[in-house]
Design a protein around this nucleic acid. Structure first.
Length: 492
RNA sequence: CGGGGUGUAGCGUAGCCCGGUAUCGCGCCUGCUUUGGGAGCAGGAGGUCGUCAGUUCGAAUCUGGCCACCCCGACCA
């Protein structure tokens, strides 16, 4: 197979697709809009899951699992949420097939097996979860209820892109119940911070924390918090969301609790999620024209060792050294793979592991055995160095750390360089076309203005940054007074 | 749902205008030589040309229907 990746400067979306497919992350499937996540892609997702899951547990959450199917009557209970998702729901109407009498060997839907009530394939699980919580919560002693689930969901998208938007995707959704509004808001903010922490310290992607405007808010939420990241083509990607749901779902599903005074009140809720979309963020933040670049902390294999030999005896001697080194590295919890396949040549392996984004590559040849050295190459800079094998362990530990930090720093510098402060609509439009990125600009706070700007420029308000400095100014579109800048960008 | 495009070996393609059952590259298999940046040579295997129908002595090629997927828009995380 020829591994020609379209340069990202020539065609960014083609480049993205090439990376996903050629680095063996995922593939289009026989089902429209649905992807197959291949072992290499899934291994990275598993690393993300492990890190996030630990963070959830460390903040007091536990995992559970709720059904894929949601009866229509439950689904429609919270009206705003139901309306928001109505257009993209898959619906189960029948439970049986039968042989087609007119077409031998084919099957048709058995019209006798129509469901009394249709089942919605979950686009999100609030409905079934709140219906369940009703039975779990009676008293303030049952609160807070802090539950997460890892699941698949289905949203029937018209246009899909691998990882970024697929009809079915994998995610986690946290659903919590609290006795006070304050506590629920704190929970929503806490989980936003968990996401931001994960994004910056694991994915090595800097993010802006913010609040969504009412038009971008999750259907059924009082407030939606988000983290927004900037991809290297200047488009924004929402990397995670956390919602303060108020008492909307508690009221819709009649979830009340007795407080300390014995009075009944509706519980306060949150939900929060990140999805396999993070894979897209990872790719579009660090990778290059040679392929994927994986931050060491999420790399299923952090170090690969390639032997270079001429004879069987040579390989044996190299393998002896490699085994010693691997034992040391594994003791330090470094995942290391020794690729001693004889079916591929070293140069082929080098290219392959670059394409797949393995952070560190070691080459050991017969010459190295004499000099007691190894060659170490780092994926982020594509640079190589010769060190003595005695230093290797210490060197690699430091190097993995350095690569992780370097990736974050590069992404941070880029994001900062692509963030502009703008005070006129003319400049706003010019910048979007010539130097796309984040734009901080004044907005009058009206939905109407937001909508007009979107229509004219395709840019949307990504968020109202949480750490915003209050600053008097005038809306770039309407000229009306404004108290703070908001973050605009064209988005995925 | 609108506009555009593609469907030929595992992958990428030529051939189609002007009908005579298929080109090239990568990959695969066998052997030998190789191995410090995607190896070389020799031999070999692999195709109901998306699908259905029509025209014709004969269809990858012409005509019509259908299907699938991709790209661009509207919608969305």
């Amino acid at each position: 197979m020829s591994k020609n990746i379209t340069s990202k400067d020539i065609d960014y979306s083609k480049w993205y697709n090439d990376i996903v497919v050629q680095a063996d992350l995922a593939d289009h499937s026989a089902v429209r809009g649905c992807m197959v996540i291949k072992p290499h892609g899934y291994a990275i997702w598993e690393k993300m899951q492990q890190a996030l899951d630990k963070m959830f547990k460390d903040t007091g959450h536990v995992n559970a699992y709720f059904p894929l199917f949601i009866p229509k009557s439950l689904f429609e209970a919270e009206e705003k949420n139901a309306e928001g998702f109505a257009k993209e729901c898959a619906i189960v109407t029948h439970y049986r097939l039968k042989a087609d009498p007119l077409n031998k060997g084919k099957l048709i839907v058995d019209s006798d097996a129509k469901l009394e009530e249709e089942l919605i394939v979950r686009p999100t699980s609030e409905a079934i979860i709140w219906n369940t919580y009703k039975g779990w919560i009676q008293s303030y002693r049952d609160l807070p209820l802090l539950i997460n689930q890892w699941a698949n969901v289905v949203r029937w998208e018209m246009r899909t892109r691998l990882f970024l938007r697929t009809a079915e995707f994998l995610w986690q959704e946290g659903h919590t119940a609290h006795s006070t509004e304050k506590e629920a808001i704190e929970e929503a903010e806490k989980m936003l911070n968990v996401y931001a922490d994960f994004s910056e310290n694991w994915l090595a992607i800097p993010v802006i924390r913010g609040l969504k405007t009412s038009s971008e808010r999750f259907a059924g939420a009082e407030e939606t918090y988000c983290i927004e990241a900037l991809m290297h083509d200047g488009k924004a990607l929402q990397a995670g969301t956390s919602h303060f749901l108020g008492q909307n779902f508690a009221k819709a599903f009649d979830v009340k609790f007795a407080n300390k005074e014995g009075k009944l009140d509706y519980v306060w809720a949150t939900s929060w999620g990140v999805s396999t979309r993070l894979m897209g963020a990872l790719i579009m933040s660090h990778s290059d024209d040679k392929g994927l670049v994986i931050p060491p902390k999420l790399a299923p294999t952090q170090v690969v060792i390639v032997p270079i030999y001429k004879t069987e005896e040579g390989l044996e001697k190299i393998t002896e050294q490699v085994n010693l080194l691997m034992t040391k590295l594994k003791l330090k919890n470094i995942s290391v793979k020794y690729d001693n396949r004889d079916s591929q040549r070293p140069g082929w392996k080098f290219a392959e592991y670059e394409l797949k984004g393995i952070p560190v590559r070691i080459a050991i040849g017969e010459r190295d055995l004499e000099s007691g050295t190894i060659e170490i190459a780092r994926r982020d800079l594509l640079s190589k160095e010769i060190i003595t094998i005695n230093q290797a362990e210490e060197y690699i530990i430091k190097l993995l750390d350095e690569i992780q930090n370097n990736l974050f720093k590069k992404a941070l510098d880029r994001t900062q360089n692509m963030t502009h402060i703008v005070d006129s609509f003319i400049q706003f439009k010019k910048l979007l076309d010539e130097e796309p990125g984040f734009i901080l600009a004044h907005w009058d706070g009206s939905q109407e203005t937001e909508e007009k700007i979107k229509e004219e420029t395709k840019a949307t308000i990504r968020c109202i940054p949480l750490n915003n400095v209050k600053e008097e100014g005038f809306c770039i579109y309407s000229g009306k007074p404004s108290k703070q800048r908001v973050l605009f960008a064209r988005a995925y």
